[in-house]
Design a protein around this nucleic acid. Structure first.
Lengths: 144, 144
DNA sequence: GTGAATGCAAAAACTTTGCATACGC
DNA sequence: GCGTATGCAAAGTTTTTGCATTCAC
């Protein structure tokens, strides 16, 4: 149990209770290092089975605490990924097979400035989401 | 019926059959000039009632034909907006009341270039989605 | 001990599928 | 007339809610 301390630390720092399901969920996200759907998180747990409802509630709590980030990949369900040391992280999504790959640097500050100059009803922007869609190299070949 | 000709033209150009439900759906999106959820589209129809299933199928067909665009506003259901003459259009979304306001110009070309330089598994990017989240001026006041 | 987290059951919300009928081209 | 679009019913997914029990602090 090497991850144990790391995961526990994360929860402590975020001011969240450390429970077995939460530790398992966080550990799974940590191992994955890419956005996982709730269903996938549960699948990645292995022996430590966690109720679906608990996963929904825990991930929402994590999100509110800033531990994880909800990313929208254009599928019709949420994906979550750990918020790491890295800055803004976004994804390229394959429209054919769903594969994703992360990239960084979207110049959010500039984007927000630009947007706020155009809209009248907003002055506060606290977050953003971005995804690029295309074909991964494998699917690009298959689809000729 | 002034919109009739305009809507019909859109459908013709897209190579889609012109039917009453489709014309009504398109007209609603046109009047709204902002992203609508399926439920909202149906509500906006007025007397011309359309079955939910038909709306789903029609909007998907419109999307494939490039007439409308699916936008992700972080709610847990899809929103659609008409693809107009304008270029890339994105939205600022209020996290409190859900109000949205559009803005343009996200320098997609630059973004894509940046991303492709970082990922190994992709060479083709065909689209993207972007949303900014914050508090609209009204909610910013209420939330003190 | 106390309040929050969990799990189960059930429901709500959103979306898709199958099939017979109606309608645009 | 042919083939697609529609509407209804039904089912499939994803997410939320209620409540009694368990557990972290």
């Amino acid at each position: 149990m090497e991850q144990y301390r790391e995961v526990l630390m994360l929860l402590r720092t975020a001011g969240l209770k450390s429970t077995a399901p939460r530790r398992a969920l966080l550990a799974a996200l940590m191992r994955a290092a890419r956005p996982l759907s709730i269903a996938n998180v549960l699948k990645e747990l292995g022996r430590a089975s966690v109720d679906t409802v608990t996963a929904y509630r825990a991930l929402r709590a994590f999100e509110k605490a800033g531990l994880v980030r909800r990313v929208d990949l254009g599928h019709r369900h949420a994906h979550y990924e750990l918020v790491g040391a890295q800055g803004d992280r976004h994804h390229v999504v394959c429209l054919s097979c769903g594969t994703t790959e992360p990239f960084e640097g979207c110049d959010a500050a500039h984007l927000v400035k630009e947007a706020l100059a155009q809209v009248r009803g907003f002055r506060t922007v606290t977050g953003h989401s971005l995804a690029l869609y295309g074909l991964c190299n494998t699917c690009a070949v298959v689809n000729k």
